[in-house]
Amino acid sequence: MKGTLANETLVRFRSRNKGLTTMLILGALILIVFIISMNTGYIRLSPAVLIRTLFGAGSDKESLILFDFRLPRIVISILIGAGLAVSGCIMQGISRNALADPGILGINAGAGLMVTLFISFFSATSTSSIFLLPILALLGGGATALLILVLAHRPHQPLSSTRLLLTGIAVAAGLSAAMLVLTLRLNPDQYQFVATWLAGSIWGTNWKFVLSLLPWILILLPYVIYKARVLNVLRLGESMATGLGASVSREQLKLLFAAVGLAASCVAVSGGIGFVGLIGPHLGRRLVGSRHQLLIPVSALIGALLVITGDTLGRWILQPSEIPTGIVVAVIGAPYFLYLLSRTKE
């Protein structure tokens, strides 16, 4: 007995050390891309100019470029990546399906439809709209999640992860079609905005958008980490989780609400960036295993790294034009999704 306990303690210690090392490496990579991204754009800022501007000694033009345009966009990219990846991690945990993702399941499409409806009647750049959009996106994403659960549910049967996935794909296709129909009544400026949004362009690029997104991340991310043990139990299956004393349905609803809140608030300022919630948790699981105490923060860091890298590449490849971040991420994510689909056993 003592030997077994000692072995378990040693395994946990090694796993924790591996997780911390992984997080440090990912943090260092994010910092490197962060520095590169500050110097990426139509107007280049040399390292000396960057340092001088960061310490307040730059010209008005240099300060405007760095503090008003680039830094907010970089911070938003990191927040969006972390939020979408953790949302995907939750959905994969409660559905026990590695293909679950807020984009694939239609949550992003539901949030996007609500944002598109709002934009068709009101301005999206006013101060009140900036803080209202995440709430509207949450309502749209929540309604979509509820619809998917109702359609995928079968009386007296456990919820099938495959049925949930296929239902989500069908609902997402329907909502995307509805968004396209809705664009027919938009004026040219509104249509251009929606088209850019659908491509996954980070359109909220000032500090007001950072402030509108930050509370959602700061509240929901610690809550999900707090619920890591519950996610570990839910992975064991409904019968086992019930036997261990977990209130499965109630915990699933709480975690689903957190996942929808994270995804919808990110979608409200980033548009339709897909695959981040799929790739982040899956790579995190390969790096640190399935224990959500480590998997959640590692997934957040991988998601942040993926989006900030995609945004930086999108601004660099075709200067002075930009490739939407969603397209760059999709170039990476689509082949990876097909790879996962080919390996699934269901």
Rank of each mutant, 00 (worst) to 15 (best):
S160A: 01
L132I: 10
P134A: 03
L138H: 10
A124M: 12
S126E: 10
G141F: 08
I135E: 07
A111L: 01
L159Q: 15
G140A: 09
A111M: 03
I119E: 11
L113G: 00
T127C: 02
P134V: 00
A98T: 12
S120I: 10
L133E: 12
G142F: 07
P155M: 08
V115W: 08
M114S: 02
I135N: 06
A109E: 11
P158H: 14
A111G: 04
L138W: 13
A145R: 07
L147H: 04
L147K: 02
A124G: 13
H156C: 10
I148N: 01
F118A: 02
L146K: 07
G112I: 00
T116N: 08
A100I: 02
I135S: 06
A124N: 11
I119K: 09
S128L: 13
N97T: 10
G112Q: 01
H153E: 12
P155H: 12
L133T: 03
L132E: 08
T116H: 05
Q157P: 14
V150E: 10
A98C: 02
G140N: 11
N97W: 11
T127S: 14
P134C: 00
A100G: 06
A152Q: 09
L151F: 12
A143H: 06
F122E: 08
S160E: 09
L146A: 08
A145F: 10
L149E: 05
L146N: 00
L132N: 06
Q157W: 13
L133S: 04
S126A: 04
L105P: 06
L136H: 00
F131C: 01
L105G: 01
I135Y: 11
A143W: 12
A143V: 11
V115R: 10
L99M: 12
S129E: 07
L133Y: 07
A98P: 14
S123K: 13
N97F: 13
N108T: 10
L113M: 07
S126T: 10
A145N: 04
A98R: 13
V150F: 15
F121P: 09
G142E: 05
A137P: 05
S161E: 02
A145I: 04
G110V: 05
S129P: 11
V150Y: 14
G106C: 05
A109I: 07
P155D: 06
A152P: 07
S120V: 03
V150T: 08
P102Q: 01
A124T: 12
S129H: 05
I107M: 04
A145H: 01
L149G: 03
Q157M: 15
I130P: 09
L105H: 00
A111K: 01
